[in-house]
Computed example of a mutant assay.
Amino acid sequence: MKPRLAVLLVAFAFASAAHGGARNVTDPQAPRALPESDSVNVRWEDPSRFSELRYSGNRWEASRGNWVQELATYLRDRAQQRLPDGQRLDVDIVDIRRAGSFEPWHGPNLQYTRIIRDVYPPRMTLDVRLTDADGTVIAEGERKLSDPGFLMSDSATLNSDPLRFEKRLIDRWLAQELRTAERGVKNEE
């Protein structure tokens, strides 16, 4: 490699890091919660303890990016759209296992490729607390989400979002959770 090219590559790498290049979800400086909101608050544990990283075939590649915050933001935004006025939802993300997995035994050409198979469904564990305008608890507890049929959806092949399976898991859970909570409030009236 030519010395000038090497110097440029090193300078580019430092510039990318200085300007917030690719982030790592286990970065100690990364946030562990979204900014507080009146209706929906989302926090998460240290991602290095998530199943996604602990059981990954390529821990380095699995930790790349900002996918925890992206999923938390998606959860908050979708919940805010569905949540009735006056209700509040607090969610702690306890664990995430993304759809697919790294299979390093396929060799160096595929060690950075997430292999999507039905044996690697998306999973999430959440601690949830849903309250009404008076602060009365409507629903709370641990929720274990999983979608073993995640590859059966028509939209799965048409969408290029790398978090599409996890987002669909969140959408299904919110539809069920808020529908159940709404029925519980109506039954009390």
Results as ranks from 00 to 15, higher is better:
residue 1 M to C: 13
residue 8 L to F: 08
residue 8 L to Q: 11
residue 9 L to Q: 10
residue 12 F to R: 01
residue 17 A to L: 04
residue 17 A to Q: 03
residue 17 A to W: 02
residue 20 G to P: 00
residue 21 G to Q: 00
residue 28 P to Y: 02
residue 28 P to M: 10
residue 34 L to H: 05
residue 35 P to I: 07
residue 38 D to S: 09
residue 40 V to F: 03
residue 45 E to A: 07
residue 48 S to Q: 11
residue 49 R to I: 02
residue 52 E to G: 14
residue 57 G to L: 02
residue 59 R to Y: 02
residue 62 A to E: 06
residue 65 G to Y: 09
residue 68 V to R: 04
residue 70 E to P: 00
residue 72 A to T: 07
residue 78 R to A: 09
residue 80 Q to T: 11
residue 80 Q to C: 08
residue 89 L to G: 14
residue 89 L to Y: 13
residue 93 I to R: 03
residue 93 I to K: 02
residue 95 D to E: 12
residue 97 R to K: 15
residue 98 R to T: 12
residue 102 F to V: 08
residue 106 H to A: 12
residue 108 P to T: 13
residue 115 I to L: 09
residue 118 D to Q: 11
residue 118 D to A: 12
residue 120 Y to W: 15
residue 124 M to V: 03
residue 125 T to L: 03
residue 125 T to W: 04
residue 130 L to W: 07
residue 130 L to G: 03
residue 140 E to S: 08
residue 147 D to E: 08
residue 149 G to E: 15
residue 150 F to T: 02
residue 152 M to N: 10
residue 153 S to I: 02
residue 153 S to W: 06
residue 156 A to G: 01
residue 156 A to F: 04
residue 162 P to D: 00
residue 164 R to M: 07
residue 166 E to M: 14
residue 171 D to Y: 06
residue 173 W to F: 14
residue 174 L to Q: 02
residue 175 A to K: 07
residue 178 L to S: 12
residue 186 K to I: 13
